[in-house]
Simulated assay, not measured.
Amino acid sequence: MPQLFIRLPEVQRRTGYSKAWIYRLISQHRFPVPVKIGTRAIAFIESEVDEWINQRIIESREEVA
């Protein structure tokens, strides 16, 4: 499966989080770290973000059970 990049607006759309909250989670080592893709550009690895989202779902289901 190829690794795909997604930009911050897409990460915000998928998570429902603001830019500030995403960067706060990154600084706390609680969210996937973006990669530098250009001089002034970063992107996130789609599979890492998807895995992070899936893990949040699993954790929320475990709390209910």
Rank of each mutant, 00 (worst) to 15 (best):
Y17L: 15
Y17M: 15
S18W: 01
S18M: 05
S18P: 00
S18K: 02
K19H: 09
K19F: 11
K19W: 05
A20S: 15
A20K: 15
A20W: 11
A20M: 13
W21H: 15
W21G: 07
W21C: 15
I22A: 08
I26G: 08
S27Y: 04
S27C: 10
Q28E: 06
H29I: 04
R30G: 02
R30W: 01
R30H: 08
R30C: 07
F31W: 10
F31N: 01
P32A: 04
P32L: 06
V33E: 12
V33G: 01
P34K: 13
V35C: 10
K36V: 11
K36D: 00
K36E: 12
K36A: 13
I37Y: 04
I37Q: 05
I37G: 08
I37N: 04
G38A: 11
T39V: 11
R40H: 10
R40C: 05
R40P: 00
R40V: 06
A41H: 14
I42Y: 09
I42A: 01
I42K: 04
I42H: 10
I42C: 03
A43E: 05
F44D: 05
F44R: 03
I45S: 00
S47G: 11
S47A: 08
E48H: 02
E48C: 00
E48S: 03
V49D: 00
V49N: 02
V49W: 00
V49E: 01
D50N: 11
E51H: 13
E51F: 13
E51A: 15
E51R: 13
I53S: 04
N54F: 09
N54I: 11
N54M: 11
N54C: 07
N54P: 05
N54S: 15
Q55Y: 07
Q55M: 07
R56S: 02
R56N: 03
R56I: 05
I57V: 11
I57G: 07
I57Q: 07
I57W: 11
I58V: 14
I58G: 02
I58K: 09
E59Y: 03
S60K: 11
R61V: 03
R61A: 08
E62G: 07
E62N: 14
E63H: 02
E63A: 10
